[in-house]
Design a protein around this nucleic acid. Structure first.
Length: 851
DNA sequence: GGCCATCGA
């Protein structure tokens, strides 16, 4: 097939040559004929690019997923090499054509001559990013850890702390101990049919979970719901589904599903398990994440994101295709996991043969147990290196300064090259200032000490710059990684020996009364503090320096972070639950119920958007909106765009809004250029929504060019994500019966569609630079990232309201007040939007009759 | 003239 593809290329070339000859000689050729050729030429160019891109993705995927898998057939290997060759040839050619030198800061892996990307290095770097899961299970690692543990079996001080709690679960411990004996008796009877490779088998046996295998199977057999407490490195995620599969839980046709909070985790674990089972990924073992379904009819072990399983409830409310569902990393308490708890508990009652495993790393398993009708707790020990924890003696006032000083102290006093430093800070700005201070002070020290390399990392940092933290530290030097919470769970950095924990992070919480999200610096929880400390003990014994006193650790910090469900906008969740036929949400069996105010606010909004009727039942409109994996206001905007015949534009806007605020990129050293690029999308005061649309369409016009992004200081990663979302939305349009219609020049139609979804978010200019929201009147300002921040239109509609240092509206568009009445007559009356009576706002304005 | 923690569909 690939050979055919290449032939196509040469054929295309021949076609083109012929074209030229004909064009020169054939006087009689009609103009139309010529145009056709030109357009074909263009089409072929585009097609070539598309095919190459597809090939490149294939190669990346294969390298990423089959890394270390030696089960590939010869044909597969050949094909892979072939693809790789083509991609390399093409990228050589492209690099000559596209000499990109804008905001692309060269880093190690694209430093080859001619700017060519060294794919191997790149994948090395990329795979480091998500080493977490692999670390847990990599055979080499397992072996090494095993050897280390043989020498001295030590548990870290973190573990020591947790022993305090162990007596609480005495029953469960007894339960485990009893079964350990069983394990030894029946060990040899376990099924071994799937593993031919003896090395792999040994590795699997070396995992801490292995001795508990039969006991675990017995427990699953005896109980419908089981809480599993297994620490990092126990092998629970990879082994338990395999054990259950081997024990026959998939024999009657049901799948084993395992959820993960993050996409990379689902992918990597699935890849690992398929490797262990000696099957091809996507066949018996697969994964399913948004934009990527790597499963087939044969799939019996399915790893997926928790959000994915949640969406599956819409199509398959009984989860009939599953015989076992395992919810992994339950302690993280993501919004999706929490909602899954409620739904799955209900399903389990209706389906007595469905097995349910809730797996968590912490010891608040008792709470999980209580929630699931006192389900038994099964504890599996983990493996970790000891971590020494140091607290400060006296409280300090400036944690940023203290963090820098501590880092420098470590650097100065600890042996050279014995490990890197990781500092947890709260955000981008803090990271940048810390970076500056450290660099400055290091320079002042002169060349006496070894080099100290600062590596910032946060989610919004362009990928090219993120890769820096995964490069090995040069001989004799030391790295200091300045990270946000991203390093707490989402990525793992090798070689960290010292953690400096400032004790703070930014946490988002939603105020249902005002509809504001606030992102404020908050003390972390104990669980979080321990997680952070654990980051130093992954590859060897570590040390953690906490910039708070032991007293405040024990007395001031909360035990756990407040679950997301209690501090977020619930509109989306409520719509989902409503479309599953769950009506009484106030008495719904949440593990930690969200504030009733938040539920009411969500219901009120859904009613205003027309997705619920006055009895709280889902309407036809609500059904259509629920199809979209978006915030209900965005969904409503899309459904409304049908009326204004601009659905093509609106789904672009929705996709761009969904990726959030990481579109534009403004590096400190190129601020002027970046500002200019930004300006070019904001001329004419169209507003931010239209600017986003312009960005998307311009990118599309350049055939999704990466170079174009660099030139315009736009983040490629975000744009690609927007494209994926937009593609998905386009597919969904068909499902809800909306035609894809484009009307790019009718800005009024586009704005009216936006307002149809966002009419509850309107505000008017109050005085000077202050705005006042119409509903729940409150003072706010235009965020400085907005194109209208110096324009101050009288009336605006905003995408979101965020409290940072002030109340800011983000992503705004100007509107005519009468549009509000036109689009939402049930919500606004003419008197609400009349400009003349602006002296004082009547109470309850805007809430015309929505109760 | 002042900035956006982190995931997920």
């Amino acid at each position: 097939m690939l050979e055919r593809k290449q032939k196509n290329y040469t054929l295309m070339q021949a076609d083109d040559d012929e074209d030229q000859v004909q064009r020169r000689t054939g006087e009689e050729n009609s103009l139309i004929e010529n145009l056709r050729k030109v357009s074909r030429h263009e089409y072929l160019k585009k097609r070539e690019k598309k095919i190459v891109e597809k090939l490149r993705d294939d190669v990346e995927d294969e390298q990423f997923l089959f890394e270390g898998v030696d089960k590939l057939t010869e044909a597969e290997k050949r094909e892979h090499l072939y693809k790789q060759n083509i991609v390399e040839l093409v990228s050589k050619k492209q690099c000559l054509e596209e000499d990109v030198d804008e905001y692309r800061i060269p880093d190690d892996y694209d430093n080859l001559e001619g700017g060519r990307v060294d794919q191997n290095k790149r994948f090395y770097v990329a795979s480091r990013r998500c080493m977490e899961e692999i670390k847990e299970i990599h055979p080499q690692q397992a072996w090494e850890e095993n050897q280390m543990n043989k020498a001295k079996l030590i548990y870290g001080s973190k573990d020591r702390k947790q022993t305090d709690y162990q007596f609480v679960f005495e029953d469960q411990i007894e339960f485990i101990k009893a079964t350990v004996i069983n394990v030894e008796k029946h060990q040899s009877t376990s099924s071994e049919s799937f593993i031919s490779n003896s090395k792999l088998k040994e590795d699997r046996k070396a995992l801490p979970i292995y001795p508990y295998k039969d006991a675990l199977l017995q427990a699953v057999h005896d109980h419908q719901v089981l809480i599993i407490v297994g620490e990092t490195g126990s092998g629970k995620t990879t082994q338990i589904p395999q054990y259950l599969h081997e024990a026959g839980y998939t024999r009657s046709g049901g799948k084993i599903g395992c959820t993960q909070p993050r996409r990379v985790a689902a992918m990597r674990v699935a890849a690992r398990v398929s490797h262990e089972m000696g099957v091809k990924l996507g066949h018996e073992v697969g994964y399913s994440i948004r934009f990527e379904d790597c499963t087939c009819e044969k799939t019996v072990l399915k790893y997926m994101t928790d959000g994915m399983l949640l969406r599956q409830f819409l199509r398959e409310p009984e989860l009939a295709g599953y015989s076992v569902v395992m919810i992994d990393e339950a302690h993280e308490r993501t919004l999706s996991t929490d909602v899954l708890f409620c739904l799955i508990k209900d399903v389990a009652r209706a389906r007595p043969h469905l097995k349910l495993l809730i797996s968590s790393a912490t010891l608040d398993a008792e709470k999980f147990s209580d929630y699931f009708d006192y389900a038994p707790i099964f504890k599996i020990p983990g493996r970790r290196f000891p971590v020494e924890i140091h607290h400060i003696k006296e409280p300090i006032s400036d944690y940023l300064d203290a963090a820098v000083v501590t880092a420098l102290q470590i650097h100065a006093t600890q042996p050279q090259g014995d490990g890197d430093i990781l500092i947890f800070l709260t955000g981008q700005e803090e990271i940048e200032t810390a970076e500056n201070i450290i660099n400055h002070r290091i320079r002042a020290l002169g060349t006496k000490r070894a080099e100290l390399i600062t590596c910032p990392i946060y989610a919004n940092l362009p990928t090219e710059l993120q890769a820096k933290i995964f490069e090995p530290t040069p001989e004799g030097a030391r790295k200091v990684v300045l990270a946000t919470n991203i390093a707490e769970t989402s990525l793992t950095i090798d070689g960290i020996k010292y953690v400096i924990d400032t004790g703070f992070c930014k946490i988002n919480s939603y105020n249902p009364r005002t509809g504001t999200e606030s992102l404020l610096v908050t003390p972390i929880s104990k669980a979080s503090a321990n997680q952070r400390a654990g980051r130093s003990g992954r590859t060897g014994p570590g040390k953690c320096f906490r910039l708070y006193t032991e007293h405040s650790y024990t007395n001031d910090l909360e035990v756990n972070t407040i679950p997301e469900i209690q501090r977020t906008n619930l509109a989306n969740v409520v719509l989902l639950l409503k479309s599953l036929g769950i009506n009484d949400l106030l008495n719904f069996d949440f593990m930690d119920p969200p504030p009733s105010e938040a539920l009411l606010k969500a219901l009120e909004l859904l009613f205003a958007l027309g997705s619920l009727d006055k009895d709280g039942k889902l309407t036809k409109m609500g059904e259509r909106m629920a199809e979209f994996p978006l915030d209900p206001m965005l969904s409503k905007m899309i459904v409304a765009s049908d009326k204004y015949k601009c659905s093509a534009e609106i789904i672009s806007v929705a996709a761009m809004l969904s990726v959030g605020n990481s579109i534009f990129y403004s590096p400190k050293d190129r601020q002027v250029q970046a500002d200019n690029a930004w300006m070019s999308f904001h001329i004419g005061n169209w507003g931010d929504h239209i600017a986003l649309l312009k960005v998307y369409n311009s990118w599309k016009e350049t055939n999704f060019s990466t170079r174009w992004c660099y030139e315009n200081y736009i983040q490629v990663r975000s744009m690609k994500k927007a494209r994926d979302i937009r593609d998905q939305l386009e597919d969904l349009l068909e499902r809800v019966g909306i035609d894809l219609t484009s009307n790019v020049n009718d800005l009024e139609a586009i704005k009216k569609s936006i307002i149809s979804g966002f009419f509850p978010h309107s505000a008017r200019l109050e005085k000077n630079v202050c705005y006042r929201t119409i509903k729940n009147p409150q003072i706010c300002h235009i965020h400085h990232s907005s194109g209208l921040s110096l324009v101050f239109p009288r009336w605006v509609v905003y995408h979101e309201l965020v409290l940072t240092t002030k109340e800011y509206m983000r992503q705004i568009t100007e509107l005519k007040p009468e549009w509000l009445v036109e689009v939402a007559p049930h919500y606004y009356q003419l008197k609400d939007v009349e400009d003349s009576s602006s002296k004082k706002m009547p109470r309850g304005i805007g809430l015309a009759s929505s109760k």
